[in-house]
Design a protein around this nucleic acid. Structure first.
Lengths: 332, 332
DNA sequence: ACCGGACACTAGCGCGTGCAAGCTACAGTG
DNA sequence: CACTGTAGCTTGCACGCGCTAGTGTCCGGT
């Protein structure tokens, strides 16, 4: 056998098999607008392509088109919980249907490799919240001009604050008046943390509650115990936590210092991570369905890449509060 | 201004600027073996490349070389904890130094997009444990021949069972004799689960302990409570959990059913996830430093991609047991 | 019978790079 | 002085595909 090394099937092979030119094959396979192809030829080409198992060569397409049809999602360096998964899944799906590939990329502190955008030549780079100046510079240096959220624009995705409002409302409905906010000390979460804190402050104000008492809570040191002590002395009866990890740290510290949860202190988490249900007591938390957000962001990316119309409305992120055992009515 | 649209800098631009041919530029930048370039020319080319900010066009390289220099890591669909991060970080670093890019890809059930290997044309696809038959078929159909772990070979990475041995030993040292193993019901974890269970069985046997009592524990339903009840009636005093999530489920069920942990039941987790430290009581767990594993796997991938020598020894994964509050001496 | 135009296609360039083959000047050899 | 060898380059093709600028054919209108 001569060609025991199976060559790749190219468009030229299809052309030869179907008895047409390579260009025609291209027109058929890409549904090139402005080209009229007879139905017979079209079917013949498609049949041969399927029979031979043709798969276009991405690199060649990228080179010829000048665009890679890759959208790079830069993810924050925190665990991918269900939310994030749904978010990515939906975004990938929307992009996939539009002929784009989504690559998710987690860059983290201490990363010693060159960032992926330097080598992948994505058409669009999408972040979760606004990129910091250094990253933007690196992106620009790599020749990437299409960035979402756009540098200099509004930093946050729509719909990301609804959950915090629910947390505060829930505690308010239970009769709590003196609330606290437990921040995450993680620098990677600083932007979102600040955003959630702002929202909590605004909601507290709108509901006519007292000032929020804010402390940063790290589960690795004694800050949780300190914060809980101060809050207790200050008459705080309920804590809004940045996320479930922080809520767990607060709850754990309260239990270890002899306070009961929710008897002495109600705690609400955020994100409904698996941890929330596992914890003893099970944590009241906020569940987000981020599919809508994923769709929204993907459409924004397609708009940047292709000039397609932008999504008309905002992102629809539906958010629900999941009551469990870590919150109770005041004085119950 | 004529060229307000900034064209991409190509090797031809460097050639023109340095007064040499395009080929020479290629030879210099790639250190092509078998080519002699005078030091003066080499420096001139490098200087111009730096001055113009040249970045090679990945797609063009891929097309010309016939290889993409991308290694695709297919990750299991469980949260990326610290271990995994270290593993990926080290692997990415090793590949990066070799001129390869690593793309990490999490495929999960319900994923509606085409798998990334269909569009990314990676040179090598690396899995965490052996790929199932369907996936292998899909990989092959995409023209991917370089797969690790090799289909049909041994399914597991070396060093992944050391932690389980530590779990059993720890309980043995505390005087426990009747042990149980808490499995994860997650089908995605089945392979690794079975592997850890086997290891536990073998270790139990080697230490001359009684038979392992095995139950699957899901935190979403009542299986944890059932398992704990049965174990307690059967005189089991210590549980080896597949991972920290399972350990938390077991511990939670025990607490809710009135048993004390570690008083009535000791529980050891695995992976040292953040959850382990947060939980009340804090979970004894196993910490792995997976950097060694990452290096090992990356070198295997390079071997497949490039024919470089394989790593000589096995993977060195150092594993330590982190004692916390969920285990105690028998009868303490 | 001739022309214009719609239709259905083809020839071929360009994308940026890697690399094989060839070419030139010059040093060294007989 | 002709010849060989080699350092140091250049020429040019290949990679697979997108797409512009055509080319030929058929058909209805005058």
């Amino acid at each position: 056998m001569a060609d025991t090394v199976r060559r790749r099937i190219t468009a030229a092979d299809i052309a030869a098999a179907a008895g047409v030119s390579r260009a025609t094959v291209g027109f058929v396979l890409n549904n090139t607008p402005g080209q009229t192809i007879s139905e017979g030829t079209r079917q013949r080409v498609l049949a041969e392509a399927a029979r031979l198992g043709y798969r276009p060569h991405r690199a060649a397409q990228t080179l010829a088109r000048g665009r890679s049809r890759i959208v790079l999602f830069v993810l924050p360096d925190w665990p991918l919980e269900h939310n994030m998964r749904r978010y990515l899944d939906e975004a990938a799906h929307v992009l996939d249907e539009a002929g784009f590939s989504m690559v998710a990329y987690t860059r983290h502190l201490g990363d010693r490799s060159r960032p992926l955008w330097e080598s992948l030549d994505p058409d669009v780079v999408v972040g979760f919240s606004a990129f910091d100046a250094g990253t933007v510079k690196s992106l620009r240096a790599s020749g990437i001009t299409k960035i979402f959220p756009q540098p200099g624009g509004r930093a946050h995705l729509p719909g990301l604050s609804a959950g915090t409002t629910l947390q505060v409302r829930h505690l308010h409905e239970l009769g709590h008046v003196r609330l606290a906010f437990a921040e995450s000390p993680d620098p990677r979460l600083a932007a979102l943390n600040a955003h959630r804190l702002d929202t909590a402050r605004r909601t507290v104000h709108d509901l006519g509650l007292g000032e929020l008492s804010v402390h940063s809570v790290d589960y690795r040191d004694g800050t949780a115990a300190q914060a809980v002590g101060r809050w207790h002395r200050a008459g705080v009866t309920a804590v809004v936590a940045y996320n479930d990890d922080v809520a767990a740290a607060v709850t754990g510290a309260a239990l270890r210092s002899g306070l009961s949860v929710p008897g002495d202190l109600s705690v609400v988490g955020h994100d409904d991570s698996p941890l929330a249900a596992l914890f003893v007591p099970a944590l009241t938390s906020v569940r987000m369905n981020s599919s809508g957000l994923g769709r929204f962001v993907a459409q924004e990316a397609l708009h940047l890449a292709d000039g397609r119309p932008r999504p008309s409305g905002g992102a629809d992120v539906d958010v629900t509060l999941v009551p469990r055992d870590s919150t109770a009515p005041l004085g119950a």
